[in-house]
Design a binder for these strands. Structure first.
Lengths: 249, 249
DNA sequence: CCAACTTTGTGCACGCGTTCACAAGCGCTA
DNA sequence: TAGCGCTTGTGAACGCGTGCACAAAGTTGG
């Protein structure tokens, strides 16, 4: 849900393509975003299973563990190819490899965190991020007292050096954990530094060029959505009440 | 994206309802989740405008500030009623009040945070959460060294006391920031303690009863989605390359 | 080797959310 | 007060994602 996205992605998949051509790359483009998010969840569940020594699993069981229905799981997996065996199920290791390939986890993506406050600290210490590796290879802040201090094994640099450091260390993903007013300026520098994707924790709508992908994690919004549901429940209860409904039990 | 949601919400809105009846409560149920999330964003933008002394605004300008198109903005606002003036725009204060009402922000919702590690610390110190208040009124951890220690002004309690403390302080929203293995047990206790909604930071698919709402914030998944986009871009570039495309510039 | 059973992969239909485009409504001006 | 221009609010069409249900395919047992 970046500032502008999709909008005009007109070409979803080449329509008149030869059927025998693999077209993996075109296929990748056609995977719905929601499915990509679920694939990441499947990957985690599968990794857990692999550690437990499970080698094979059916869609029914895997879908239950991932909290979706089995048809959706199979459709999601079909986006990346046919790696199951009918009558048997899926080989865990094969799925793990294929999902990692599609998600681009075979290459390591260097990450930087900007804003080493409470949240930034937490993110920096997260340690390469759960699951396999997104190495955090740069940290930035404005506070002079923090510059040069190691956090989670990385030395904090000054935000003025974002462009240079990001270029040097080939950072592809930037995480913004600054106060809201600083976010847009930091974002601009990350873009100048060649960062392709941004994960934004600041409650601000970022403006970015079309070639940069933004995802935002907005705690206030999440809380307010929950608040909405609490209110909705309360209203429902009030409604049921005034319409003379008998309380069960 | 809780474990199970929606599924069978058959009743979307009473079909043959009298047109003159307000039916605000029924209306509330019909607001799509995506629209609720955007309403929260509009609310933040509007609050900022109000502070700057702006009293009135048109959909075109507001939508630009929120990063959506104007038609979507107007449709979203129409879900909560007709509070605009044709030919003029919307009164900022009116919109703020109405969105707050719909989101249930008129009542304060007490929040608790479970797991006072790096992330939990950050959340506890977030200070009533951005925008107007979600007072954090309880903190929990297993670590004996943390029990009784004040974090962000609140004393940390033991996770064994979750049920009692949540009941006593009428906590309606629980935030889980524990390691993955502890998440489900903590979740069960929160539910027993009467918590209605859960915000889950642990990379685990939580199982909850139907009457509890779960939202998850999964950093690993977010990173992997970004990774997918990086990979997609790289593939596109490779494609364009091998098809003999001329690099612009 | 055949039959029965199991599970995948997917065509199709349904429903929700987004977008378009315009009618309805309000204010301003003459 | 009538006409004009602007902006809202929404009916309708479109497109995407979800869920169903079944054909295809593979395995096991006789």
């Amino acid at each position: 849900m970046g500032a502008r996205r999709g909008e005009d992605v007109e070409v979803v998949a080449a329509p008149g393509r030869l059927p025998d051509e693999p077209a993996v790359r075109e296929r990748a483009r056609a995977i719905p975003e929601a499915a990509v998010a679920r694939l990441a969840v499947y990957l985690r569940v599968l990794s857990g299973l692999a550690e437990q020594g499970v080698t094979s699993i059916a869609s029914e069981e895997l879908s239950a563990a991932a909290g979706v229905n089995s048809a959706k799981l199979r459709k999601d997996l079909s986006y990346i190819g046919s790696y199951g065996t009918r009558g048997v199920g899926y080989e865990v290791e094969v799925l793990v490899d294929q999902i990692e390939r599609i998600l681009g986890l075979t290459r390591k993506h260097s990450v930087c965190v900007v804003g080493i406050g409470n949240l930034g600290h937490a993110l920096a210490n997260y340690g390469g991020f759960p699951g396999r590796g997104f190495p955090v290879s740069a940290l930035f802040d404005v506070d002079e007292d923090l510059i040069g201090v190691p956090v989670g094994g990385i030395l904090v640099s000054h935000v003025d050096d974002i462009v240079r450091v990001c270029s040097e260390r080939e950072i592809s993903i930037g995480v913004i954990a600054t106060p809201p007013p600083a976010a847009q300026a930091v974002c601009d520098r990350l873009v100048s530094g060649g960062v392709q994707c941004i994960l934004n924790f600041a409650p601000v709508v970022l403006q970015v060029p079309d070639h940069v992908e933004v995802r935002k994690v907005d705690l206030a919004v999440e809380m307010q959505i929950l608040s909405f549901h609490v209110a909705r429940r309360a209203d429902e209860a009030a409604n049921a009440d005034e319409s003379g409904m008998v309380v069960p039990g």
